[in-house]
Amino acid sequence: MFSYCTDPEALEGLAWLSCYLTTGKHMGLYISVVTVLVLLAITAPVALAFGFAGATAARSKFLPLRWLGKGYTSIVRGVPDIAFFMFFVIALDQGFEWLRHQVKCPDWPDAIRQGNDFVVCTAAKLPLSASPQWLHETYAFFLAVLTFAIVFGAFAANVLFGAMRAVPRPQLETAEAYGMTRRQTFWRILVPQMWVYALPGLSNLWMVLIKATPLLFLLGVEDIVYWARELGGTKNARFTDYPHGDWRMWYFFALLVFYLSFTKVSEVVLERIMKRLTHGQATSGGEAQRRANA
């Protein structure tokens, strides 16, 4: 990267380190950090939406919808994450390809399942084998987002379901007494008030989601932990300009710092949100705030 990096063997100290930390391989690590952050930024709202839909369905008056909501939360919460990430994603990917195969190659003579092999016609591949590697990676990334959203959405649905039931009944009765319809009561009274009950559970989920990102590697997306292990491993002078011993400890230490500071920042932010949500609520926290200001 820097002009003085052409002969790393002659370098020492900080100059060497600055060259070492800017190799193409280290760029892979930095990109994976961004990948993880982007994944979290997209997954969190999508999972919350899944959760909201699940919770609303679970308390619906319409029986099949209620079954759907309850089934979603109980089944997905019961399946171990790792099993979900190993099998569901491959199944999802094959499902997409199967659908495309049916549409694009209706005259295909061979079976799709041949022994162990899953073979769809070339035009049905997702993404096409001819497309560049970044497209394959983006596709894997979106599969990851979808899978994370489904898993964490189920937990969020359960949290929101509980939170909706925790809103004091008199609040809803008052709304009805004012002549609000069911829909109005739901959107204007129930939803704004439930967040304060949901937040502790949701913040737990957020923390778990941050720590679950290394599961990405199971989905073929190179995550931070993969790169830390790869970069930290012993490097022989035959294959690299920057030979070193087993440095995994340092890389994992850096990961520790990254995850701890990330969760710390999250805690501070969540604390602030909690304070704002508590304002004016008929909870002990809201009461304490009122007294402090009075």
Binding site: I42, L126, L128, A130, F142, V145
Partner: peptide
């Protein structure tokens, strides 16, 4: 979810232009 469908569609579209083999 909508975003996902859109991006999947976009991917499928872009993928269509590449050549085989």
């Amino acid at each position: 979810m909508k975003k996902l469908i859109l991006s999947t569609a976009a991917l499928a579209l872009v993928a269509g232009f590449a050549s085989a083999d």
